[in-house]
Amino acid sequence: MLDVDGLTKTYDGHGRSVEAIRDLTFHVGDGEFVCVVGPSGAGKTTLLRCIAGLLDNSGGTVTLDGTPVTGPPAGMAVVFQEYGRSLFPWLTVRRNVEMPLKEKGLGRAERAAKVDAALASVGLRDSAGAHPWQLSGGMQQRVAIARAVAYEPRVLLMDEPFAAVDAQTRAELEDLVRRLWRELGITVLFVTHDIDESVYLGQRVLVLSNRPTVVLEDVPVPLPDNRDQLETRSSTSFTETRNHVYELVQTAKRGGRPAHAG
């Protein structure tokens, strides 16, 4: 499905170059839910932007279904952290969700049906006529998710989407994303700096090293598909996985790197 092979990214500018990503390789299978965590400044966002085709990589390849990613590929949707800035403030919620479908060339009736379904699935049926800035942060992020869902992507990239919402809203949105993933059977790559969140959401957690970034460890999450904020988070396997990931991130912060990589 999604293959990242030997990806490197070096920023040049002002006479010096910064090596952000060094040799990242991983694979995400069809229908998987994979989380990416790492210490802040680990180049998580850079990685995501490279995969999304928003940023040219310096070396290596990103392939989606065997096709190399050179620009934003079809069948991929991105939910950004900055919900307030990724929604078009001059459009209503409904038009925001509808806009990408229009660009896809769908007919009016089909668009309306998809927008309604997507808004209903995130619980925003009643806010369709509002403008994004009239909604709370959590609701704005729901709009962004609805927009992604209506687009019917095969891969959904999420860049720390809940970093800016309060804890309660965050738990709701986490469950929303889990539910949509299971209902729609899409592939999700979820970038976060929150260790608990990564374990709670993902089937696998990729822990990134410090800059220049490599994959420190690919941690499988031994939790059932049916997850619950209370039960799952208090289970032993959750705690064990969480502690393991926590230690890895601490290692990464101290500059620890996997044995086989530079």
């Binding site: 928003l54 991105v78 900055e82 800035r85 660009e103």
Partner: peptide, 18 residues
């Protein structure tokens, strides 16, 4: 213009004109 808006438009493959 906000770069996140630009990125949004790009990632949803908006056409040049729109």
């Amino acid at each position: 213009l906000d770069e996140v808006l630009r990125d949004t438009a790009r990632s949803y493959r908006f056409g040049r004109t729109s």
